[in-house]
Simulated assay, not measured.
Amino acid sequence: MVTLLELFIEFLKIGAIMFGGGYGGISLFYKELVELKGWISDQEFVEILGVAESTPGPIAINSATWVGYKLGGIPGSIIATLGVITVPYLVIMGIVMSLYPYMEHPLVKTAFRGINAAVVALILYALINVSRTVLLEKNTGIINYVSLAIFIVAFIILYVLKQHPVVSIIVSAGLSLALKLLFGV
Rank of each mutant, 00 (worst) to 15 (best):
F11L: 00
I79E: 00
G174H: 07
A149G: 12
V67F: 08
F112R: 07
I78P: 14
L5F: 11
Y159I: 05
N144G: 08
K37W: 05
M97H: 15
R113I: 04
A126S: 13
Y69M: 08
F183C: 02
I152W: 04
L127N: 13
S172H: 10
I40V: 09
I95T: 07
G94T: 08
L5D: 03
I150Y: 05
I156K: 00
E47S: 14
P58Y: 02
L107C: 12
T110S: 08
I143L: 09
L71Q: 03
G72W: 04
E32W: 04
F11D: 00
L127I: 04
V34A: 05
S77P: 12
F112D: 02
G76N: 00
G174S: 09
E32V: 07
I40M: 06
E47C: 08
G73N: 09
A80D: 04
G114V: 01
F8D: 01
T86N: 09
W66I: 15
S168R: 04
F151Q: 10
A118R: 14
T133F: 05
V51T: 11
L181Q: 12
L135H: 06
I150F: 02
T3K: 06
E53S: 10
V91K: 08
L5C: 07
V160F: 12
G141S: 04
G38I: 05
I142E: 14
A118E: 11
I61S: 03
L148K: 10
S131W: 10
V120T: 02
I115R: 01
V153D: 06
I128T: 12
S147Q: 14
I74C: 15
G22W: 00
G50C: 06
I14V: 07
L136H: 15
M103T: 14
V91T: 14
N116W: 00
L136W: 14
L181S: 11
I74P: 15
I169N: 02
G22E: 04
G114R: 02
Y125F: 15
N144C: 06
E53I: 11
E35C: 01
T65K: 03
G114I: 03
L33T: 02
I59P: 13
L12N: 12
T55V: 15
V87Y: 07
E32A: 03
W66S: 14
